[in-house]
Simulated scan of single mutants.
Amino acid sequence: MKLVLNKDKMLIEKEQDVVPFRNRVKEHAVKIGMSLLNQTKLITAASELVRNMLKYAGGGVAIIEVISQGRDNGIRLIFQDQGPGIKDIPQAMKDGFSTGKSLGLGLPGTKRLVSEFDIKSKEGEGTTVTIIKWKNG
């Protein structure tokens, strides 16, 4: 069972919201003593997901949680939007797939950077992506 120790919620509506969000993620990661390498992986994943939310859904809500499971501490990030949703999640999770004009590294690349990755999406209703990066993982 994962216990939430601290929760921070941010509205992401424009490109200018990305840097303060990244800074907030870093602050929480530093507080729990996450290594610089794991901080970098977490912030890279968070940046990709927050930019996807802006690009494809026009923004949404990002929640930062400091969590604990046994002796492990970590950061859980939840990205929720009311965008068009993802039609085919398995397809979207393949390297090289893109509906935009990007390299298509987003979702599968993000999954590789974090300890846990979950995505739920309904066409016409939106998408929720949840990632966890454990302090030591």
Rank of each mutant, 00 (worst) to 15 (best):
M1D: 14
M1C: 06
K2A: 06
K2T: 10
L3I: 09
L3A: 03
V4I: 15
N6K: 15
N6A: 13
N6I: 01
K7S: 09
D8N: 11
K9E: 13
K9I: 15
M10T: 05
E15H: 10
D17R: 07
V19I: 12
V19C: 00
P20C: 03
P20S: 03
R22E: 14
N23S: 13
V25Q: 01
E27G: 01
K31I: 04
I32R: 06
I32L: 15
I32W: 06
S35E: 11
L37F: 11
L37N: 09
L37R: 12
Q39V: 11
T40Y: 06
K41A: 14
L42M: 07
L42I: 07
L42E: 02
L42P: 03
T44Q: 13
A45C: 07
S47G: 15
S47F: 08
L49G: 09
V50Q: 05
N52H: 13
N52I: 12
M53S: 08
M53W: 05
L54N: 08
L54A: 10
A57D: 10
A57G: 06
G58K: 03
G59S: 09
G59D: 08
G59K: 05
A62I: 04
A62E: 01
I63V: 15
I64T: 03
I64G: 02
E65L: 01
E65G: 03
V66H: 06
I67R: 01
S68Q: 15
S68N: 12
Q69G: 09
Q69S: 15
Q69D: 14
G70S: 12
G70C: 13
R71A: 15
R71W: 10
N73V: 04
G74Y: 08
R76G: 04
I78M: 13
D81H: 11
D81T: 11
D81F: 08
D81V: 09
Q82E: 15
G83D: 11
G83T: 12
G83I: 11
P84F: 06
P84A: 12
P84M: 07
G85S: 11
I86G: 04
K87S: 13
D88A: 12
D88Q: 08
I89M: 02
Q91F: 10
Q91K: 15
F97C: 02
F97W: 14
S98R: 01
T99P: 02
S102Q: 00
S102Y: 03
L103M: 07
L103A: 06
G104T: 09
G104P: 11
L105Y: 12
L105Q: 08
P108F: 02
P108K: 05
P108V: 07
G109N: 06
G109Y: 04
T110W: 01
T110G: 10
L113Y: 03
V114P: 10
V114W: 05
S115F: 06
E116L: 13
E116K: 11
F117R: 04
F117W: 07
I119P: 04
K120E: 12
K120M: 01
E123Y: 05
E123G: 12
E125G: 00
E125P: 04
G126R: 11
T128V: 14
V129M: 01
V129S: 00
T130A: 13
I131S: 05
W134I: 09
G137R: 13
